[in-house]
Amino acid sequence: MSSPLAASDVAIAFDIQGLTKVYETEAGAVHALRGVDFQIREGETLVLIGPSGSGKSTLLNILGGLDRATAGSAKFRTFELTGASDAALTRYRRASVGFIFQFFNLVPSLTARENVALITEIAIDPMSPEEALERVGLADRMDHFPAQLSGGQQQRVAVARAIAKRPQLLFCDEPTGSLDSESGIQVLEAIAEVTAAVGATTLIVSHNAAIADMADRVVKFRDGQIAETIRNSRKIAPREMRW
């Protein structure tokens, strides 16, 4: 099996073929993904939108190595995620992927600097916690605890934590879902700025259709399938969006 750490000059970051995910429940089988075929280019920013249960977060979790497909294949560069061992997926997540979730998942007893250091201490070639926090506009909040920060500031700490490893991939699942509009815009600005800075391929899952305007491509999900893909002729900065 190829290493997920190997450099690649190919233009395609992900090649996804027939990707299927079925969850078995007491009520019967739930088809979260139904044979998705898709390619994602290196350095793209994609926004995945659709109703709850449409498959967008399931796809994100499989591509992030957090979940496994039932059938089909998903390849990141030369690394085949489907069929990879748990150890290989752990190395892939640690080396290549930064995650941002709706809930900040900060350690309350650690400062912003210390929360980011949790990642930089295990990353291969990280930026310093100080640099990561400066990139998201929190240079003056490094030694504050989560309880001393607003919701938007806490999410920006989570962004700093995600990008401190200089990830090749940045996966954001409802990153503004628990924030007011101004805090959400600030978080999206931080994501856009750091994505450009580290050159990451970025996927953002959101229920907020306005966020689609910041994407290179918008992917609409329905019933476990991709219903439509739209390429934006012009990306709009978060501050210009109609929230």
Rank of each mutant, 00 (worst) to 15 (best):
L81V: 11
D67W: 00
G50R: 01
P51K: 14
V36H: 06
L33N: 01
S52V: 02
G43T: 09
A84I: 09
A71W: 04
T82Y: 09
T70S: 07
V47Y: 06
L81K: 12
A74F: 00
V36N: 06
G64K: 01
R77A: 04
F38Y: 15
V47W: 03
G53D: 00
G98K: 00
I40G: 03
A87R: 15
S96D: 10
K56Y: 03
V47P: 00
Y92I: 08
A27I: 05
S54D: 13
A87Y: 11
D86M: 12
G72V: 09
G64Q: 04
A69I: 07
E26Y: 10
L66S: 05
L33H: 05
R77N: 04
R91G: 02
T90H: 14
T25I: 13
G83V: 11
I40F: 07
V47T: 09
P51Y: 11
A84C: 05
Q39R: 15
S73T: 15
E80P: 01
V97T: 01
T70A: 06
V30D: 04
I40Q: 05
S73M: 10
G35S: 05
A95V: 09
H31K: 15
G72F: 04
G83H: 08
A74M: 02
K21W: 02
H31E: 08
E42C: 13
L46W: 00
G53P: 03
R34M: 02
G35T: 05
V47G: 05
G43L: 09
T45E: 04
E80D: 10
D37N: 14
A87G: 10
E24M: 09
E42M: 12
Y23L: 11
S52F: 07
A29E: 12
G55S: 01
G43S: 14
H31I: 12
R34Y: 01
R34S: 02
S85R: 14
Q39N: 13
F79N: 00
F79H: 01
I40L: 15
R77C: 05
F79V: 01
T78Y: 10
A87L: 14
G65M: 11
A69S: 10
G55N: 00
D86L: 13
E26G: 11
E44I: 13
G83Q: 07
Q39A: 14
G98I: 05
L59C: 01
L66A: 07
Y92V: 09
R41W: 03
G65I: 09
F38N: 08
G98Q: 05
R41I: 02
A95I: 12
T58F: 03
V30L: 11
N61Y: 09
V97N: 04
L33D: 04
A84P: 03
R41S: 09
A88T: 08
T25E: 07
S96N: 12
S57C: 14
D67T: 10
T90L: 15
T45G: 08
S73F: 08
T90S: 15
D86N: 15
H31L: 12
I49P: 04
Q39I: 10
I40C: 09
